[in-house]
Amino acid sequence: MKFAVVVFPGSNCDRDMLHAITDALQEEASFVWHTETDLSPYDGILLPGGFSHGDYLRSGAMGATAPIMQAVKQEAAKGKPVLGVCNGFQILLEAGLLPGAMLRNESLSFICRNIGIKVRRNNTMFTSKYEQGEEIILPIAHGEGNYFCDDQTYEALQRNNQILFTYSNNPNGSVQDIAGICNERGNVLGMMPHPERAVESLLGSTDGLTLFQSIVSNWRESHVLNT
């Protein structure tokens, strides 16, 4: 499976993401610069964390207007997996691919530590290798991860089963402990925790690798069925 790791000026988890795919997952991945306009050669799109455009104006606001985002939208519409982590999640929100917005953490502090995350749904292409309701450990590292949406949007998220991950102990003030949500179709996921930083037991946790393995296994299945 061939992944694109989209690089914005100010991305800083792009190399971790590439490492997670090529070394831990043993699949293919290439960097794609934010001014590119075609992602059709790739089977999956990854938007890494960091501080795109210095987080000026709002986190992800400028990244969301980059030329590459039209291509991300096109591939998402084809049903390909699109994963945005941390700043990548913020970009997906600002680009309107996912509902809601990010606010400063309630504490106003930048929080960087391992944290318990509950898998709320394991029947998606991103979570199928987790147990339903399983608690996993993933690192978070953000200053603006306080997910906000209005009541109507929250009801829609619940109704359509779009909440995939919640915090066991809410660190940042997110509405209803939300840590990760997907679109209605289930192929675009945004999450604040960093699965790409939890792919080797030597570094503390392999709970993130399971997410990438789920993506690959689902992709393989659908491509074996189609051919």
Binding site: L57, L93, P99, L103
Partner: peptide, 9 residues
């Protein structure tokens, strides 16, 4: 609407 403000918040 497109950039300077985020209508969600």
């Amino acid at each position: 609407d497109q950039l300077l403000a985020n209508p969600v918040i």
